[in-house]
């Protein structure tokens, strides 16, 4: 396993300003799989009546986690960017609970990385949201595929 790649990906993810603004924590990073979580925060509420977190905050978590999964993949280059991302919202996240996303880069070509992700709160048996997306594969300069 290429530890320097994982280390670099970890450093990059932990330096993302918006991930810091949401107090995201990188819980797991291995080849092509990432797990990132964030605490419940009142500033992220999308429905003031119920206190449920806004879907947009969940999509930030999903996108960050998807990008992390791509960067940790052995076939990936330096960075990545999202080409498209679809999110299905299955149920409202329970207010007060930490939200955790797990993304897997399940296929990678020379230019495109395909990713699936699932988000849960503390009730891990019932997902809050699922996502699928395509990400770019950035080639390292001077490295021919």
């Amino acid at each position: 396993m290429d530890n320097t790649k994982i280390k670099m990906a970890r450093q990059f993810i932990e330096a993302i300003p918006h991930a810091q603004a949401l107090s995201m924590r990188l819980d797991e990073l291995e080849e092509g799989v990432a797990q990132i979580s964030m605490p419940y925060d009142e500033k992220l509420v999308g429905d003031p009546e119920t206190g449920v977190i806004h879907g947009g905050a969940v999509s930030v978590l999903m996108d960050t986690c998807g990008g992390a999964a791509v960067m940790s993949h052995p076939g990936a280059g330096a960075g990545t960017a999202t080409i498209d991302l679809r999110i299905d919202y299955m149920r409202p996240a329970t207010p007060g609970q930490r939200i955790s996303a797990r993304a897997e880069c399940y296929h990678m070509t020379r230019s495109v990385a395909f990713v699936r992700a699932v988000a849960t709160d503390e009730d891990t048996a019932r997902p809050v949201a699922s996502a699928s997306g395509a990400f770019t594969v950035e080639r390292l300069p001077g490295k021919k595929p």
Binding site: A15, I16, P17, H18, A19, Q20, A21, H54, G55, G56, A57, S59, V60, L61, M62, D63, T64, G67, G79, A81, T82, L85, I87
Partner: peptide
């Protein structure tokens, strides 16, 4: 500044764009 997702470029976070 807190909306940045890639500090090297820099670029807005894709999730922020999506949320917006």
């Amino acid at each position: 500044d807190k909306l940045i997702g890639n500090p090297m470029l820099p670029a807005l976070h894709g999730g922020v764009t999506s949320a917006f």
